[in-house]
Computed example of a mutant assay.
Amino acid sequence: MDQSRVHVGNLSTIRPTVNFANRSVSLPGQQWGPRTIPDSQLLYVVSGSAVLTLGNQQIHLAAGDCVFYGSNSPHKIISSVADPSTLASIHFSWDQESPKPISPIGNILACSDNELTLPTQTYTIDVDGYGNFVLPNHFVISDLESYFNQVIREYRFEEKGYATTLRGLMMQLLVVIIRHQINGYFSSTDWRKIAPALEAIRKQPQLDWTIAELANLCGYHPVYFTEIFKETIGYSPKRYLILERIRKAKQYLLEAESIEKVADLLGYSSIHYFSRSFKEITGYTPTEFKQLSIHL
């Protein structure tokens, strides 16, 4: 029997359990490991950069990167000194009868640097209509943050029925990842070509970025830049800028900022224009969104 290969079952019948979920801002140069964990982990880079050593791989991580590894896979993560990372993390078991979390903290074990060269376990899962799917250790999905945030929120607040809800959210997250990989979305190479533009928009969505400015950040002609941006993200750079502004707007509104201040922070010339743009994307006016958030 191949001990380096783990088959977790069929996607339609597994019962994943979220054991731990957190979002953290790392210190410059902060290190986790070398270590092994008792379950499996998905780690998503929200911002900044880090380096993951896993088996014979050294993976340089940036915003939008996601990594996966299971138990008995020695690894080490080091956050960048110059650009510390914000990380969203989920520890989970693939198939457990009970959805109640079992914290992995007491069973995370230190290992030596020499053990980092050991082979990494490969995880496979049967997907109806596709066959045996191999979960990659490293992949890029631009819009994964919201799925992680849902899991983290549910885990933190422990509202009634939270364990069952976590199971449903974890299934949703796994399906999103599997679909993206099967359909071949967002290769790492294409993502890195436009990474400087994505980071600029993320850090300063209030600026009225032109295609030429964003293309220049990536070192490409505007026409070519626009083509690879749309192929990779699914939106034009201008549309992506609008979506990023609205994403930030929702965050500011949830933090109880006034509508006028949010419009100003995000570079809108008028509240009317901001409100129209917000409703087009979300289906709600900023006022309606603020009122709904009180009851969430």
Rank of each mutant, 00 (worst) to 15 (best):
V67Q: 00
K76H: 09
S49N: 14
L52N: 02
N56F: 07
V67W: 04
S71R: 07
E97Q: 12
L87C: 08
A62C: 09
A62S: 12
I90A: 00
G64P: 02
N56H: 12
S98D: 13
I77G: 01
K76F: 03
V51P: 11
S85L: 11
H60T: 14
S47M: 05
T86C: 10
H91N: 15
S80F: 02
S93I: 03
D65V: 09
I77S: 02
V67M: 00
S89F: 00
V67N: 00
S93A: 13
D95I: 05
S98H: 14
S79Y: 02
S93D: 10
T86G: 10
A88R: 01
C66A: 15
F68T: 08
N72C: 08
A82M: 10
D65E: 09
F92T: 00
D95N: 13
L54R: 01
G70S: 09
W94N: 08
E97A: 11
Q96V: 09
S47A: 11
Y69V: 04
L52G: 01
F92V: 00
H60S: 15
K100W: 14
G64M: 06
D83K: 13
L54W: 00
L54I: 14
S98W: 10
E97D: 12
W94R: 07
S71C: 05
D95V: 05
S98C: 11
P84T: 13
S98V: 13
W94Q: 08
A50P: 12
K100E: 11
T86Y: 06
K76P: 05
G64E: 02
T86E: 11
N56L: 12
L52T: 02
I59C: 05
S49R: 01
I90S: 01
L87K: 07
D83A: 13
A88Y: 07
H75A: 08
S80Q: 10
C66L: 13
L61E: 05
F92K: 02
S71V: 06
P101S: 05
A82R: 06
P101C: 06
V81H: 14
L52D: 00
S71N: 08
H91R: 04
Y69C: 05
Q57R: 15
F92P: 00
C66P: 07
S73F: 13
Y69D: 03
Q58K: 15
P99F: 03
Q57P: 08
S89E: 12
P99L: 01
G64D: 05
I90P: 02
P84L: 09
V67D: 00
Q58V: 15
K76L: 10
S80W: 04
S98G: 10
